[in-house]
Amino acid sequence: MATPTLEKTDGGAEPGFADSPYITVTFRVRRFNPEVSAEAEWQDFTFEMDPKERVLDGLHKIKWDLDGTLTFRRSCAHGICGSDAMRINGKNRLACKTLIKDISPEKPITIEPIKGLTVLKDLVVDMEPFFQAYRDVMPFLITKDTNEPTRERLQSAEDRERFDDTTKCILCAACTSSCPVFWNDGQYFGPAAIVNAHRFIFDSRDEAGEQRLEILNDRDGVWRCRTTFNCTDACPRGIEITKAIQEVKRALITRRI
C-alpha cells in the first residue's frame, strides 16, 4: 500500500543494445558514528543503478563496493522480517519494498534512520523501547483454563476475520516511528503495540482482552492517539492501523460506560 509496485512502461525509451537501463542515482544517507564524531551528517553516494531495483540494492552497492562502513539492518530482504524500515525521502518505508523508480530518482534520495528511537550507528536504531511496549501489551494467547488443552482451539471463519488485518504486522516499527506523539514522548505505547494488542483483544479464543484493554486505558495508551493517520500511511503491510486503534477505543468506551 505504501509502496506502489505497478510497472509503468517508458513511452520514450527505444529498445536496443545501446540503451542501458542504468541511471545515475544519488543516495543522501544520514551517517552517524559515535566512534568518530558526536554529530550526524549527510553523505552523498552517486552511482549507476537500474531504476527497477530497490533502495536496499542501492544500500548493498554502497556497502559492498563504495563504503563498507555504512551500517544498516536487513535480514530476509523480501519485506517479511521487518528489519530494514527506514526513512526514505522523508517517509517511513521498507528499503526492500521500495523501488528506485517510484521515489523520483532524478533528485537525491534521502535515507535516514527511523525517528524517535536512539540512533546507534548510521541507520541502526535501538529497538528496545519499541519491543518493551510490545511486551507490555502481552502479545500471546492467555486462557483461564489452566489445564493442558486436549484438542485444538477451534474458531469460526468469521471470528478469525475479525482480527485478520492486525495479524499481518511484522514489527518493523515503521508505524510507531512515524507517529508524532511517539517522537515527542517515547512513553506512548505506539501504533505497533496497539495493533498487536488488537490482534488478541478481538481473538475469540483469547480470554485476557479485559486485561489488555486495562493496560491500553492508561495515560500512555490509546487515548494519546491523535488520529493523524501517519501510521496507516507508513505501514508496509497496508494494515489499517488507525482503524484498529479506533476499535480499541470503542471497545473501551462500550465496556466501561
Binding site: F32, P34, T118, P129, Q132, D136, G186
Partner: peptide, 17 residues
C-alpha cells in the same frame, strides 16, 4: 571513547506504564 548516542525524549523502559 565513543560519543554519546542521539537519544529521543522520554524513552519507554520496563518501569513505564
Amino acid at each position: 571513547n565513543p560519543a554519546p548516542v542521539i537519544e529521543p525524549p522520554r524513552k519507554r523502559t520496563k518501569k513505564t506504564g
